[in-house]
C-alpha cells in the first residue's frame, strides 16, 4: 500500500516537474507556437525561434529544474539532519556565503571580466563559508552547535553584503548588487548550465547518500551511532554536498529563498514522514515549484520582469500560515 502511494507521489511530482520544464521552454516574451517549439527541437524551423529556444529558454528551463531540485533536496535533508523543521539551505551559511562571493565579484568589477567569473567567485564564497563552519563547529557533533555556527557564518556573510551596498561608489553599482540579490534566471546561457550542473549533481549525490543516517538520527546522535552510522563522515558529506550544490545553484540564480524551506513541508504529509522518504519528492517538488515560479515571473505583466526570489518569498508566506493554523488547531 505504502509503496503504491509512494510510486504515485514520485510519478506525479516527476510529471509536474516535466510539465513545468516544458512550460518554461514554451512561455516567454516572444510568442512561439507549440508546433514551432516541437519543430525547432527536432532541428528544423525558423533560425531566430531556434536561437531563442536553445540559447535563452532551454538553459533557463534546465537551470530552473536543477536549482529547484537542489534547494528542495537540501532543505529536506537538512531538516532531517538537524532535526529541525525550520532548517533550510541558508541555515548553514552556504547560500549567504555564495551571495557574498557574487557581491564581491560585482563590487570589484570581476564580473565584467568574464561571464563565468561571478558564479566561480560565488562558489568560492560558499566554500569559504563551509570552511569557517567547520572551524567554528569542530569537535562538536550536536545539531545545535552546528546551527549556531551556521547562523554566525551566514550573519557574517550578510554583513559583508550590507557593507558592499553601503560602500558602493554609485547608485547604479548598488542597484546591480540588489538586482542580483533578488534572484533570477533571466538571460542565463549554457555556460551557466555547464558551471552549475556538475556542482548540483555532485551536491545532490552527496546529500542523498546518507538518507539512512537521516532516519537513524531520529533516535538522536547516540541512537544513530548505535545503529552503525559514522556521524563524522555523514556530517562531512552533508555539509560539503550542501556547500557545493547550493553554492553552485545560488551562483547562477542569485539568492532564491523559501524553496528549500517550504517544499519539504508541502510533500511531507503525503509520505510516511520519515526523513529519507521526503528526499526524492522534495527534489522533484522543488524543481516543479521553482520552474512554475519562473514561468509566473514571465507571465505576470509588470513594467520590469518580476524577480524569481520575490515570487518564491510570496509563495512561502501562505504555506507557513497554513502550518501555523494547523499548529493552533484552527484548521
Amino acid at each position: 500500500m505504502e509503496r503504491v502511494t509512494r510510486a504515485r507521489l514520485v510519478g506525479g511530482l516527476a510529471l509536474l516537474a516535466l510539465l513545468a520544464g516544458a512550460a518554461s521552454v514554451a512561455v516567454g516574451s516572444a510568442a512561439i507556437p507549440l508546433a514551432h517549439v516541437v519543430r525547432a527541437l527536432s532541428g528544423q524551423g525558423d533560425p531566430i525561434e531556434r536561437a531563442i529556444l536553445f540559447e535563452l529558454r532551454l538553459p533557463r528551463a534546465i537551470l530552473g529544474l536543477a536549482v529547484g531540485a537542489m534547494l528542495g533536496l537540501s532543505g529536506a535533508a537538512l531538516q532531517g539532519f538537524l532535526r529541525n523543521p525550520l532548517a533550510e539551505p541558508s541555515v548553514l551559511g552556504a547560500s549567504n556565503g555564495a551571495s557574498l562571493g557574487a557581491v564581491i565579484a560585482l563590487y570589484f568589477g570581476l564580473a565584467e571580466l568574464h561571464p563565468a567569473m561571478l558564479p566561480i567567485v560565488a562558489i568560492a564564497g560558499a566554500f569559504a563559508a563551509l570552511g569557517l563552519l567547520f572551524v567554528l563547529s569542530a569537535g562538536s557533533q550536536s545539531a545545535l552547535s552546528l546551527i549556531l555556527a551556521g547562523i554566525a557564518v551566514g550573519t557574517l556573510a550578510v554583513a559583508g553584503v550590507s557593507l558592499a551596498l553601503n560602500l558602493s561608489p554609485n547608485p547604479f553599482a548598488a542597484m546591480e548588487i540588489m538586482t542580483w540579490l533578488l534572484g533570477s534566471l533571466e538571460d542565463r546561457s549554457f555556460s551557466h548550465v555547464a558551471l552549475a550542473l556538475p556542482c548540483i549533481t555532485l551536491g545532490m549525490v552527496l546529500v542523498a547518500w546518507d538518507s539512512h543516517a537521516l532516519d537513524a538520527l531520529t533516535l538522536g546522535e547516540d541512537g544513530a551511532r548505535a545503529l552503525g552510522v559514522d556521524l563524522r563522515r555523514t556530517r562531512v558529506r552533508m555539509l560539503v554536498g550542501v556547500a557545493i550544490g547550493v553554492g553552485g545553484a545560488v551562483a547562477v540564480s542569485g539568492a532564491i529563498g523559501f524553496i528549500g524551506l517550504i517544499v519539504p513541508h508541502l510533500v511531507r504529509p503525503m509520505t510516511d514522514r520519515s526523513p529519507s522518504a521526503i528526499l526524492l519528492p522534495s527534489a522533484l517538488g522543488g524543481a516543479a515549484l521553482l520552474s512554475f515560479a519562473d514561468v509566473l515571473v514571465r507571465v505576470i505583466p509588470t513594467s520590469n520582469e518580476l524577480k524569481l526570489g520575490v515570487v518564491t518569498a510570496f509563495l512561502g508566506v501562505p504555506v507557513f500560515l497554513v502550518h501555523l493554523m494547523r499548529e493552533r488547531r484552527l484548521w
Binding site: 532531517g80 532535526r83 542523498a208 547518500w209 546518507d210 538518507s211 539512512h212 532516519d215 537513524a216 538520527l217 531520529t218 533516535l219 538522536g220 541512537g223 545503529l227 552503525g228 552510522v229 510516511d272 514522514r273 520519515s274 526523513p275
Partner: peptide, 24 residues
C-alpha cells in the same frame, strides 16, 4: 531513548534494519 521526529511506529521499528542496509 528520546524521539526527535514524529515517525510512525512501523517506520520506527524499521530503523532496526538500518545496520544491514547499503547506502541508497
Amino acid at each position: 531513548q528520546s524521539l526527535h521526529w514524529p515517525l510512525s511506529v512501523e517506520r520506527l521499528v524499521a530503523l532496526g534494519r538500518l545496520p544491514h542496509l547499503a547506502p541508497l
